[in-house]
Design a binder for these strands. Structure first.
Lengths: 214, 214
DNA sequence: GTCTATAGACGGATAGAC
DNA sequence: GTCTATCCGTCTATAGAC
């Protein structure tokens, strides 16, 4: 097997490197989820993959680079979830159903991993901000979100801002005051109904929001 | 002056202590607002009041005790703001107006001081959680909030949870994505209208929500 | 690539003189 | 009460041998 090694050269070496990088990031996720994002240290990450801290610098330039990679990881996972929700919706699903499915997923996504939630959505790491390149992946995710919302008939910037605020509020309260529970999670249908009614009442011009019952 | 020193004893000494404690906390607020909450160190606080770090231990048991005191400070300030908003409302103000005034104040309160926002509403300090005594002051503040909401006809737990989620969402998005601006702040009236319409539509039983125009 | 050793900085907290 | 001196821990990052 592997006839591909002609001329191309170090492809197997690169694959090995990529594997190790992946293992480092996985270990970092596990540690962050377990002991908290702010307790994440290079020493612990290295130990988790059977290394010493300095060896990590063969794979990442700095701790910030690791956090960047985790950040990209996290938004990729969110992308996948949005795609999955989109795929699970029947073609004629109502805006209400689409929105409720999205918010449900979103809150679940945050509850699944508090460390990931804090990394992606709050500025929880003291000295770190996502690099421009990493930040780009969050913008990509935002575009994918907008696509999904467009499928529910929501295209205006103001409406999108309102959806993100509703989601952020439910998530923040749920995570802060009832981490494992459903005190705000179970209000999703309520909130979506409230929002959709509001849209219908204030729809100007000919913008058409599909009816819930066609 | 000061005839009061008979028998009572060390009242002037205690007053001096309280003054110094106050100065320490004020310095801590200034540093946190300037350099960020997580950069707050005992050395810097002490230097700001013309001391060295160990001297602070004459006034506070630990750094956690200082954070606790700041936490209480912050909720006291929020209490004052809620009281001020309540006092500024004419007796016959509509629920819509009352809610809008509250949310406006709330967002402004958070925008006034990012460090305070992070201390009170997010778990931004790595090793610290508010002590039970300090936490009590946040519960007091919550009760005061409930009082205010009751004045707007909102008394059911589910409705209160919805209000806090709406507020938390607007605040979180505003602070994270447009810190100094008004991208979400200016949506307060919209959100309040949405919420009030929702309440009216779903009011069960004889619960009476005052009309906006009597 | 991985290691040991260490630099260099920062943090909270304590001992003990004054 | 305040100080100096110091302990002890944390961390990221680098130098240089192997």
């Amino acid at each position: 097997m592997s006839v591909v090694s002609l001329g191309a050269g170090p492809s197997r070496v690169q694959a090995r490197r990529a594997q190790t990088r992946r293992a480092v990031l996985d270990a970092a996720w596990a540690l962050a989820s377990g002991s908290g994002l702010e307790a994440l240290s290079l020493r612990d990450i290295a130990a988790s993959v059977g290394m010493r801290a300095p060896s990590l610098y063969s794979y990442f330039d700095s701790k910030a680079a690791i956090l960047d990679a985790l950040f990209v990881d996290g938004y990729r996972a969110l992308d996948d979830q949005i795609a999955a929700v989109a795929a699970s919706q029947p073609a004629k699903a109502s805006p209400t159903r689409r929105l409720a499915a999205l918010l449900q997923m979103w809150i679940g996504f945050c509850q699944d991993d508090q460390a990931r939630y804090r990394l992606l959505f709050t500025n929880a790491v003291p000295g770190w901000v996502a690099s421009a390149e990493a930040y780009q992946s969050s913008l990509d995710s935002y575009l994918r979100l907008c696509d999904y919302l467009a499928g529910a008939g929501i295209t205006e910037a103001d409406d999108i801002d309102l959806v993100t605020a509703l989601a952020a509020g439910l998530v923040a309260q749920q995570m802060a005051n009832d981490p494992g529970g459903d005190r705000w999670l179970r209000r999703v249908d309520d909130v979506v109904d409230m929002f959709v009614q509001h849209l219908r009442a204030h729809r100007k011009r000919a913008t058409h929001l599909p009816e819930d019952r066609p």
